[in-house]
């Protein structure tokens, strides 16, 4: 059986975002030669990791190459979600102090498919990036 590339990233407040970004970048480079896509994938992971820390403090991001040729990125946490900010969070120009600032709008732009589900018991973001 074909083993597809896979990466599991545990995100919590004790782990440096830079470390996560580096691992994601390394993984991205291993699955695509396209520098633009590498940068975008790295940025996506950075956003997701930051969102987890911002809203939840801990969570998991999994990256897996999905046939035919796309990267499936799932970020999950059990935090309180962002139900109250839900629609606002989609809009450019919303930011909390100290955040990366791009947030979900940048994910919307960079991901080919994006699905978000959040509630008071957790958040799941499913991103698809065509390779």
């Amino acid at each position: 059986m074909l083993e597809m590339p896979y990466l599991n990233l545990i995100v919590d407040k004790n782990i440096s975002i830079d470390g996560i970004i580096s691992r994601a970048e390394h993984f991205a480079k291993s699955i695509t030669d396209d520098e633009i896509k590498t940068t975008e994938i790295t940025t996506i992971i950075s956003e997701l990791a930051y969102n987890i820390i911002k809203y939840s403090s801990e969570g998991v991001i999994t990256l897996s190459v999905d046939l035919p040729n796309s990267l499936l990125i799932i970020a999950e946490d059990n935090g309180p979600g962002f139900v109250n900010d839900f629609e606002a969070a989609m809009q450019d120009g919303y930011s909390s102090s100290g955040s990366l600032g791009l947030g979900i709008p940048s994910l919307i732009r960079m991901c080919d498919d994006l699905d978000i589900t959040t509630s008071s018991s957790g958040t799941k973001l499913t991103c698809v990036k065509e390779l």
């Binding site: 975002i17 830079d18 790295t42 940025t43 950075s46 990366l100 600032g101 940048s106 732009r109 960079m110």
Partner: peptide, 26 residues
């Protein structure tokens, strides 16, 4: 290829990955 060029410049200027991503995307 503007993002690649920006990436090269920001790499040279030793910007953090976070800031680099932010600037490039914007």
């Amino acid at each position: 290829l503007i993002d690649r060029r920006l990436n090269d410049i920001f790499d040279f200027l030793d910007l953090s990955k976070k800031l680099k991503c932010k600037l490039i995307t914007v």
